[in-house]
Structure formats: structure tokens, C-alpha cells
Write a protein that binds this DNA or RNA. Structure first.
Length: 609
RNA sequence: GGGGCGGUAGCUCAAUUGGUUAGAGUACCGGACUGUCGAUCCGGUGGUUGCGGGUUCGAGUCCCGUCCGCCUCGCCA
């Protein structure tokens, strides 16, 4: 076999006169008949033009070249020279070509389902996934794989410099309550017993801190058997970190440095010091716990003003528990927001439980709606009594539109938060070249679930209360939801352009505090002991204060390569229903395999509900 | 589990209100051509219109079911 001397992206004018051997795939061929054939050869690195010319090539070689087709795999040996026919400015190697003297066809291809060279005519994703090895040949996909590698390399280097040890943790774990649905693995040696694949290495990394490892990191696979989304996959990768003898600030400083290192190393972008905002502020102003601040359209509470109106929609909302009325000012909305758009918004917010979106246009004091305080259309007459105050609070200018939300705090916040994002997209307000990073802190420890009539940990049950909350937390009566829900944790999320790229907390390192959390979550002492005795024991036997974070590697890469499809950044991803279309996983297994595991399927086509 | 969109040559798409033999580009096969780089020109192969049922004289088109893909709500401590 001809041995490669360079890659297809490396050849430059300085190599002119050199003999080289390139290996790769036929990206394109241009056959001018007996005597002149061009072939673009592609590998991971780039493209180089090969030329077969009867003045330099034997008839046998020309015949070989004549048969080459797209995606054949070849090794070509020849002399580099400046192109005869003028350079191709589209290629880094566009000034040179290789005059081939020897060609070896390493692998003749069957007609491929699609051509990696034809980026403009991409087949649908199903075809791409079924023939992933072809799809991954595309330069764009190679670029993404390289970026992902670059990120993991930067990650290991950064944390190594910061004194972290990379330590592996088990993939066959014990199922623990709370959280996502587990993927389960039956045990052969322990009939009737099951492992769970880790949702995250949470407990193990805490135990490593108790074990004196001081600083740990791992790039690890996590599994959550829930329905995916565009940015979520059941099997995904975390950059998992934990540090001992630290407070919240220490972790945040270290992790901010990590983000800065990655953005600098991959994109050359300087990430400035990150703002911090509280969970409460984020929910109030942006309607989500992961605000996108690349544009305005903030939510403004007008609950107090709404009480002064006779508007039914407002008063019904205010009658609810924690009822609120909020508004979004859309600058210049009178022109940009068509009736069709605003009608669509009413439908849009219904999926979040809201009733609709009242709309008012502000025309100014001299405008068409003079008798209703400068507002016109729809609800103008209802808000006339508070017109002046509304103008002042929202900072309205003539030509603005105001969109209202009125409901319980939870519903109104969610609906307007989602509407804010939709507005920004519809109006093209998002600057895709902007980077906005921030920390969201001071999350509540618990949320009360009305349906299940119990508390849930907002982050996870090992999150510590913020130090200034510790006494209040330990004293909180579990029958007093207001007291419990008021406790703020030592958790933190890193947000990039409105998406959570990482989240963590200072952990509980005192057994009495951990027991109190389990108690609030409704875990009896016996249950807690059964499920978590190893953790509670560890906390008894000398646990250092510690805390950490986990970044979503897939999401980091998604941002860095500007894609909104998580499957693009995973070499072999799964579909919406958890199938690998290439290997056809999951699949049936032998009865004998099941028997060994003491497992019998109850599945019948009818049983699938 | 709910809602939405989609499935027609290998691939990307088209096909008046239901109406003749389902077309085009590209890939592939054959031929022509010495400076291309989306090469060009000529010819050709290629179809269970996802699958099953129904309505109809007649279904790619309408109806029901089902499978697959994507988006989304729920879910994701």
C-alpha cells in the first residue's frame, strides 16, 4: 500500500516539486475525456486537486482514473505543482495540484445514499442517521467533532492545572429515588435485583470528597430515560467537577475560569466577568430561570395598577392565589406586530396554561386613542384609568405595543417568559454574534407540589442551604410551606444565551442537615437509611465542606459550533424514540439471555398503552 | 401520554378541484470532450407514492388505522 506523506489540507505552493502521497475519498471528479481528469481528494483535513494528464500518465493510469467515482477510497502518489489552469480561491490548497503518477484504489464504493460533498442538498436527518458514517465525512461534521475534541482537551488541561484529579465512577449503580426515570440493568448474580445507569455521578463525587481526593473532575456519560428535546438526549455527557474546602464563590470563580478558557481556546472570544442574578429576579424580569439577555422585552409587574381597573381578565387573575398581572413593552410594535401575529400569541400562550394575550397599542397623547389615555384597540377602554401610570412604568413611546399576561404567578411568568422568546425570534431581535453569560443564584431549596402534596428539591436533595439560611432551615416546620419554600440554597447555574450550560451547588456535609432534607422530602428515616445509608455514614465519618458543578458538554459544543440540534454534536446519536437508526438498537435478545437474568417480558402489542 | 409538521426514483423535490403511461434535478450506467473546480454536451437504468384498510368508474391526492422522523407540552431532582 502507498503510505501517506501528507494530508489533503496541508499541500501548499511551498511543496511544489515535492513527491507526495495522499489518501482519502473522491470528493468530486471532472473527466475531460481521454487525456485529462481532475479529482478532488478529501480527508479529515481538506481537499487537494489531483490531475491525471496523458502527458505525464500512462494509458493504464488514465484508465484507472477514468473509473473513479464519488467516495471511492484511494491513495495517490505524484508531484506537487502550481496549477496550470489558474488557482481556485475557494480552497486553501487552491494554488496547487498533484500530478498523479501512481494510483491505488483502496476501496471501491457502492453508490452511496448521499454525497458528503453536496452540503447544499442535505438529505433528511433520518437518512443521515441511518448512514452516519457517510454523514460524518462532511466537513461540517468533521469540524464539530474536532471542536468537541478541542473542548475535552481544554477541559482536562484546565482542571489539571487547577489541581483536579480525573477519577472514573461506576456506570452500574444503585437506583435512587427522585429525579428522572432510570435505565435499568438486571443482575445475573443477584436474581431479581437491578442496577441503574447513573443519571449523574452525584453521590460518587461527593464520596470522593469524603475520601480526601480534594478536587475531582470527570467527563462522563449520564443516562436519563425521559423524552428528548432538540437540546436533550437520553444519553448525554457531563463535565463533572467537585471541590473540597470551598464556598460558593470559590467554585464559581474556578468554573468561570473554565468557561473563559474554553471560549478563548475554541473561538478566541473573551468572556467578561459574569453577572449574577437571583432566581427570583430572573423569574420576575425574564419569566425563566435561564434568561436570554441578548435582547430587552423584559416583563414588568403592573399587578398594583391592574387592581385599579374594571378589566375582567385582570380582576379574575388577581382573585387567584398569588395572582399577578404583567406586561411586556414592544418598542415600535404597532408597526411590526401584525394582527395575525398577536392572534397567534393567544394560541401560543394557551399551551402554557394562560388564557390569552390582551394587546394595547400606545399612540401617544395626540394619537388616535386620545379619549382612552393614548391607547387604542381592544382593551384600551379598560386600561384608560391607569393609562398615565402605565406609560410611565413601561416607559412607553408612541408606536409601542403592550402585551399583557394575567394569571397566577407561575402561569403568567411561564407564559410571558416563553412569549418573550417568541417575540424576539419573530422580530429578529437576537444578535447571533453576541455572547451573554451569567450566573443565576439563590434558588429556593424546595418547591411544593400540590398534586403529590409534598416537597421536591429544586436542584437535588444534597444541595446545602445558603450559610445564612442554615438556622432558618433547621428550624423550619415542614407543615409551614411558606417557611420551607423561603429557604434559599447554595446552588448556582451558568447560563449562556438563555440556555443552562452548567449547574451545581455547595453540598450538605452535615448528617443532621441531610436528614432534615430527607425528612422534608417525605423520606422516612427507615427509607433514607435503606436508600442512602452509605451517604449518611460517609457524612458521619469525616466529610469536608464541598461543592461542585456539572457542565453539559453537548450543550457547550452546541453553542461553540452554533447548532440548535444536539444530535449534530454527538457522533452516534439516538432519535426521538431512543433508537439508533444505524445499528438498530434497541433490539430483541435471545430467550436464554433473559432466562440467565431472571427476566421475562410482559410485552404484547396490546399491552403497549 | 397530548398537540403540530412531514414521509413520492439512491438523494432533493414537483404532480390543476380525485382523472391518460407519476415528472425534473442530482447520483449511478454508457458515450463525447485537454484546464476543470456545481465542468460541459448526448443517451440510458431507476417507483409496492412508508405500510394496511376504506370511499370511488378512477386515489400520490379524500377518510380510518398503523409505523417512522422532526418540533413541542407534560416529563427531564
Amino acid at each position: 500500500m502507498l503510505k501517506r506523506t501528507q494530508t489533503c489540507g496541508q499541500i501548499r505552493l511551498e511543496h511544489a516539486g515535492h513527491a507526495v502521497t495522499l489518501c482519502g475519498w473522491v470528493n468530486a471528479y471532472r473527466d475531460h475525456g481521454t487525456g485529462l481528469i481532475f479529482v478532488d481528494l478529501r480527508d479529515r483535513d481538506g481537499l487537494t486537486q489531483l490531475v491525471f494528464d496523458k502527458e505525464d500518465a500512462s494509458p493504464e493510469l488514465l484508465e484507472q482514473a477514468d473509473k473513479l467515482r464519488n467516495e471511492d477510497v484511494v491513495a495517490a502518489h505524484g508531484i506537487v505543482r502550481k496549477r496550470d489552469g489558474g488557482p481556485n480561491p475557494k480552497l486553501p490548497t487552491g494554488e496547487v495540484e498533484v500530478v498523479v503518477t501512481k494510483l491505488e484504489v483502496l476501496s471501491k464504493t457502492a453508490n452511496p445514499p448521499f454525497l458528503p460533498s453536496d452540503e447544499k442538498n442535505l438529505p433528511n436527518e433520518e437518512v443521515r442517521l441511518r448512514h452516519r458514517y457517510v454523514d460524518l465525512r462532511r466537513p461540517r461534521m468533521q469540524e464539530i467533532l474536532k471542536t468537541r475534541h478541542r473542548v475535552t482537551k481544554l477541559t482536562r488541561d484546565y482542571f489539571d492545572e487547577q489541581g483536579f484529579l480525573e477519577i472514573e465512577t461506576p456506570n452500574l449503580c444503585r437506583s435512587t429515588p427522585e429525579g428522572a426515570r432510570d435505565f435499568l440493568v438486571p443482575s445475573r448474580h443477584q436474581p431479581g435485583q437491578w442496577y441503574a445507569l447513573p443519571q449523574s455521578p452525584q453521590l460518587f463525587k461527593q464520596l470522593l470528597m469524603v475520601a480526601g481526593c480534594d478536587r475531582y473532575m470527570q467527563i462522563c456519560r449520564c443516562f436519563r430515560d425521559e423524552d428528548p428535546r432538540a437540546d436533550r438526549q437520553a444519553e448525554f455527557t457531563q463535565i463533572d467537577c467537585e471541590m473540597s474546602f470551598v464556598e460558593r464563590e470559590d467554585v464559581m470563580r474556578t468554573m468561570e475560569g473554565f468557561v473563559r478558557t474554553v471560549w478563548q481556546g475554541v473561538l478566541g472570544v473573551d468572556v467578561p466577568a459574569m453577572d449574577r442574578i437571583t432566581y427570583r429576579e430572573s423569574m420576575d424580569r425574564y419569566g425563566v430561570d435561564r434568561p436570554d439577555r441578548r435582547f430587552g422585552l423584559e416583563l414588568v409587574s403592573i399587578t398594583d395598577l391592574a387592581a385599579e381597573t374594571d378589566f375582567n381578565v385582570f380582576s379574575q387573575a388577581l382573585a387567584k392565589r398569588k395572582g399577578v398581572v404583567k406586561a411586556i413593552r414592544v418598542p415600535g410594535g404597532a408597526e411590526k406586530l401584525t394582527r395575525k401575529l398577536t392572534d397567534g400569541y393567544t394560541e401560543f400562550v394557551k399551551q402554557f396554561g394562560a388564557g390569552g394575550v390582551p394587546v394595547a397599542k400606545y399612540t401617544g397623547p395626540g394619537g388616535a386613542g386620545a379619549e382612552t389615555g393614548g391607547f387604542e384597540t381592544g382593551i384600551a377602554r379598560f386600561i384608560a384609568p391607569i393609562a398615565d401610570k402605565l406609560v410611565e412604568r413601561l416607559g412607553l413611546e408612541p408606536g409601542d405595543t403592550v402585551l399583557f399576561g394575567a394569571d397566577s404567578y407561575a402561569v403568567c411568568t411561564k407564559a410571558l417568559g416563553e412569549l418573550r422568546l417568541k417575540l424576539a425570534k419573530d422580530l429578529g431581535l437576537i444578535d447571533e454574534n453576541k455572547w451573554d453569560f451569567l450566573w443565576v443564584i439563590d434558588f429556593p431549596m424546595f418547591e411544593y407540589d400540590e398534586a403529590e402534596r409534598r416537597y421536591f428539591a429544586l436542584h437535588h436533595p444534597f444541595t446545602a442551604p445558603n450559610p445564612d439560611q442554615l438556622d432558618a432551615f433547621m428550624a423550619a416546620d415542614k407543615n409551614d410551606p411558606d417557611a420551607v419554600e423561603a429557604v434559599v440554597s447554595a446552588g448556582y447555574d451558568v447560563i449562556c444565551n438563555g440556555s443552562e450550560i452548567g449547574g451545581g451547588s455547595i453540598r450538605i456535609h452535615r448528617q443532621d442537615v441531610q436528614s432534615k432534607v430527607f425528612d422534608l422530602l417525605g423520606l422516612s428515616e427507615a427509607e433514607a437509611k435503606e436508600k442512602f445509608s452509605f451517604l449518611l455514614d460517609a457524612l458521619r465519618f469525616g466529610a469536608p465542606p464541598h461543592g461542585g458543578i456539572a457542565f453539559g458538554l453537548d450543550r457547550l459544543v452546541m453553542h461553540l459550533v452554533k447548532t440548535d440540534n444536539i444530535r449534530d454534536v454527538i457522533a452516534f446519536p439516538k432519535t426521538h424514540t431512543g433508537m439508533d437508526l444505524m445499528s438498530n438498537a434497541p433490539g430483541a435478545v435471545d430467550k436464554a439471555q433473559l432466562r440467565d437474568l431472571y427476566v421475562r417480558s410482559t410485552y404484547t402489542p396490546e399491552a403497549k398503552s
